[in-house]
């Protein structure tokens, strides 16, 4: 059951990314272009996600365990280290340059545009290398 739940969650996530416009790099970059062809749509994506996530996670915080596994794997770290800041800063530069972040990039693989087909392997190399040195 837990694998079925993961599959459905992935599917809903991907549909959400497509409907919201996140898989379109032009739309992402226009959101990031405050002084040019600004498209505020992506603020609504974040707004919609948090409007559901905020009460949802709050409720789950009261549950003793998830439905199909033994324990919640809530993130536990509360410190602010340089990896958090430097990593996030570098991620933002890459996101701005390509207009793609990991979710939309993977989802867009099955749309099959040539740009995503070079972006995703590069992203995997970056992730793998970081995993090795981290």
């Amino acid at each position: 059951m837990s694998l079925v739940a993961s599959l459905i969650a992935g599917l809903i996530f991907g549909i959400g990314l497509i409907i919201s416009g996140m898989v379109n790099p032009a739309k992402v970059q226009n959101f990031l272009d405050l002084f040019g062809t600004w498209d505020p749509s992506l603020a609504f994506v974040m707004g919609g996600a948090i409007a559901v996530g905020l009460p949802g996670f709050w409720l789950l915080g009261k549950w003793s365990k998830p439905l199909f596994t033994e324990a919640f794997q809530w993130p536990t770290r509360t410190d602010f280290d340089s990896k958090l800041i430097v990593g996030s800063a570098i991620f933002g530069v890459g996101w701005g340059l390509g207009g793609l972040c990991p979710g939309p990039a993977v989802t867009a693989l099955s749309i099959g545009s040539s740009g995503v087909l070079v972006f995703v392997p590069a992203m995997l190399v970056g992730m793998w290398a970081t995993k090795l040195v981290k």
């Binding site: 059951m1 996530f13 959400g16 497509i18 409907i19 559901v52 949802g56 789950l60 596994t69």
Partner: peptide, 25 residues
């Protein structure tokens, strides 16, 4: 500018995130 579609898509992303935590933690 697609406020309604983006809000709907965002809500789906939120639903997915809550679903994954509720089922698999």
């Amino acid at each position: 500018f697609t406020p309604l579609l983006s809000l709907t898509g965002g809500a789906l992303i939120g639903i997915s995130a809550v679903l994954l935590m509720a089922t698999n933690g």
